[in-house]
Design a protein around this nucleic acid. Sequence first.
RNA 1: GGCAGAUUACCCGAGUGGCCAAAGGGGGCUGACUGUAAAUCAGCUGGCAUUGCCUUCACUGGUUCGAAUCCAGUAUCUGCCA
Length: 455
Amino acid sequence: MTRDTPAVLPAQNTSSGGAGPAPAAASPRDFTFAVGHRLTGPDGEPRHGRTGTITTPHGTIQTPAFIPVATQASVKAVLPEAMAALGGQALLANAYHLYLQPGAGLLDEAGGLGRFMNWPGPTFTDSGGFQVMSLGSGFKKVIDMNGPTAPSGQGADDAVAPGKERLANVDEDGVWFKSHLNGDRHRFTPEVSVGIQHQLGADIMFAFDELTTLHNSRGYQEEALERTRRWAQRCLDEHARLTSERAGKPYQALFGVIQGAQFEDLRRKACGDLAGMRSDFPDGGGSGTALEHGFDGYGIGGALEKENLGTIVGWCAEELPEDRPRHLLGISEPDDLFTSVENGADTFDCVSPTRVARTGAFYTADGRFNLPGARYKRDFGALEDGCDCYTCAHYTRAYIHHLIKAKEMVAHTLMSIHNERFTVRLVDRIRASIVDGTFYELKDEVLGRYYAPRD
RNA sequence: GGCAGAUUACCCGAGUGGCCAAAGGGGGCUGACUGUAAAUCAGCUGGCAUUGCCUUCACUGGUUCGAAUCCAGUAUCUGCCA
C-alpha cells in the first residue's frame, strides 16, 4: 500500500478496463478458481487451508481474501476509490437491500452493480438469505460461549428476539418479507432472489438459503436444511435458465450455501447434497449444446458457536470439491480468520470493520479499542502505530476523537478506512504466510498480541 | 416602591409531608457490536464502604416522629403595576 494512492483499482483488477461495456463472452468458463499453495500443519501433515486465484469477468481475487461489505452498493461512509486504495479486491452487496432501495432493474439499466457504484473490480451479491433470519427471529447469528438463552424446544422455533417484530415468514416455496423501511410486503423465492441477482449483475452470487439460529430445535434445523437444499436446486435451475436467457452478459457465478448449524451430520450432508447438484447450462461456444454445471463455489453460513467455527469449516472443506472456492459468510474477527483459513475457507465478508468503526471502535495489533474514551482526548498519535492506511498517514487519534464527539460524519469515513485496511491487510498477511510457510508463526504472533490480557 | 411567581444534582427539567439520593432528557463515563432493521444498543453518572452509612433540592431559622415538599426571614431572578 502506498499513501496518497490515486483513485484507481489495484493492477490485478483493471483487466476489464474499468466500468465500460460488458465483454461479449458469456460462459461458465469466465469464472475459474486455481489453487496455489497448500497449508502444511506444524506436524507436517497437510491442512485444508490454501491460497488460490479466483478469476471473474471483472478481475481476479487472490485468496484467502477479505471482501468488504457494500450492502446497498456502498461501503458505508467510504468511497470505492478509497476501498481500492486500501487493497480491497472485491465488494459484496445485498440483493434484498438493493431490491428494496433503487430496485434491481435500475442497476441492470445502469450497466450492473459494479458500474453503477463505480467499482470496476469483482463484485459479490448476497441472496437475501441472511434477512430470513435477521428480519425473522432477530437473534444474533453467532452465539456467545454461554449458548442459547432463549427458551428451547418446541416453542423456540417461533421465538423472536426481545424487542423485535417478526418481519419474515418462511414457507416451502419462499419467504414473505415485511419491509423494515415502510412495511410493504415482498415475496422472495429462490427464483426471485436469483432473478434479482442476475439483474444486479455481480460476478459472484449466492443461492437463497434459510439461515437458522441456535435457538431452533434439531428438528427444525433438519426441516430448514432440507428446504434450503430444495431451494438450492431451484436456484441452480433458475441460474441456468437466466444464464441462457441473458447470453451476452458477463457470466455470473453462483455459490451454494451450506447450512446445518453446529451439527456435523447436517453440515456434511448439506455439503454432499450441494456438491452433487447439477443443472444444464448452455455452453459458451454458441453451439446450442448444454453442459452439466454445478455450483461455482460454496458459501458456508449459518448458526454456529464461535468455538466450533474451525471444526465446522473443516467438515465442509472435507466434503466440498477441492477445485471450487469456499466463502465463509459474515466472519472477520482475527482469531476467526486464522481458524477459518487454516480449515479451508478462501474468502470472507463481514460488516464488522465498518460497523464497529461507526460506533467508535478501531482495530490495532494490540486489540480493539473504543476511541470515544476520554483517554484519547490528547492522544496525537495515529490510530495504530505503523499502520499504512490513509487515515493513519494523515490523522491523529485526538482529531478523530474530536470528530466523533462533535458527531462529524467524516469520523466514520476515517475509522472505516482504518478498520477495513486492518482486516484486508491481516488476510493478505495470512495469504503470504501460507506461501512462505510461516502461517503458524504468524498466527501465534498476531493472536498472542491481539488477545493479550490487558491491564 | 407594591403585587405575583420562580430558585432541584454538570445542564435542562419532574417532584408540593414519609414509598426521595430524588422521574425524564441532554451531556459525561464504560462496555458491546461477526452474510448491516445497527452513525446503534446496554450499564453507570452525590460521596464512601459488603447489605449499609454519610452529605444534598438558593441561604438562615422554625413546625413535625419525619421536610425538596409546610411556615418566617434573607439573597438572586422573572413578570405586572407605580
